[in-house]
Design a protein around this nucleic acid. Structure first.
Lengths: 186, 186
DNA sequence: TCCAACATACCGACCGGTCTGTTTGTATGA
DNA sequence: TCATACAAACAGACCGGTCGGTATGTTGGA
């Protein structure tokens, strides 16, 4: 693994878990065992450039990991359930769960450049696009597919937050049970 | 308004909008037009003690504001819809929406004391208790009331996050439309 | 007069970023 | 094949600023 990829990988983990401001450059350098000279060589515009690289890297990970789950499962419901089960397994293995978005930095976006918000927003949009595409293939109207995709995104993100707060995987397990109701009735 | 209450009020706004680490003591002092001596007089144990005071104050605000909405509305669905409408109105008026929890600090809890996580978790629990109580009065079984309460909490928090990220009130509006489906089918 | 409430200067630690020096890798020419 | 030159990649010291917290001084009210 080259140095730039190592930095992106470690920074992604740290930013997702702790947010942007709470993770200093020295935390990232320590995790990678490199120095600031190397960091500024690859990211001459600094910390924010690194964050944007992490967001773009996550965008690509969605394209490989999530799209694959959705292609392997016959319907939206089973695909989303598989995905949630992976999140639950992550929580039970590591005690933390981060998903494929950067919800941890959402509240810090006001202090960062617009390109950060755009890159972060595009992660949520991409998840919703994947859900919506599958829902349409399941036979839902475009309007309903849009609404359900958004509801799924919101409730999964909220569930992740509750797991973190309550130190329990129970919230995501409950969401796993309740989601079928939306697909049936809405 | 006394100095201590002024600090709690301003710190609450700042912490909810930007998180804990991203808000420095000087930001709070500037917002209140006081100095550090006054802050440490009232909160001798420092920044974290102020945060916990904010969390406790929010706990009391839930007791007055949210419980009132729930008492004034005949069913859980209408009460939750009123509440979401207030959040949407806040977003449209101010460009930000914070709700009654401190989701902004969830990812920073690992670096803070356990009492912070407990105080923060109690806000989410209190919201869920209010929903659950009303759902039980609506005639839902305890198990279903629990699950629906959690789903509501998660989806509203997720919706707030998406509003912030997308700079639009549309996510909360969609959740407003989808929530009835859960009550009908689950 | 005393003390609560507040103001202000100061402290060491940490912050992101800058700058200079060193090492490594690669291409070229003899 | 080896020497040389150059640039990419990296290391580490340094910078000014901000951070939360400490200590001392001041003010106003009882």
């Amino acid at each position: 693994m080259d140095t730039k990829a190592l930095m992106i990988e470690n920074a992604t983990k740290l930013f997702q878990q702790h947010g942007y401001k709470a993770v200093g450059l020295n935390d990232i350098l320590k995790a990678c065992n490199i120095t600031k000279g190397a960091l500024y060589h690859h990211f001459p515009n600094g910390k924010e450039e690194l964050l944007i690289a992490c967001l773009q890297s996550m965008n690509e990970a969605i394209t490989t990991d999530i799209v694959e789950i959705f292609q392997q499962n016959p319907s939206t419901l089973t695909a989303v359930q598989r995905m949630i089960e992976k999140l639950i397994a992550q929580f039970e293995r590591e005690g933390t769960v981060t998903g494929y978005t950067f919800s941890s930095i959402v509240n810090e976006m006001g202090a960062l450049s617009e390109s950060v918000r755009v890159a972060c927003s595009s992660l949520f949009s991409k998840m919703q696009d994947i859900y919506r595409g599958k829902l349409a293939a399941d036979g839902f109207t475009e309007e309903k597919a849009n609404a359900i995709a958004l509801m799924m995104t919101a409730s999964i993100e909220g569930g992740i937050m509750l797991c973190t707060t309550q130190k329990s995987s129970e919230p995501l397990k409950v969401i796993l049970q309740v989601l079928p109701a939306i697909l049936k009735e809405f």
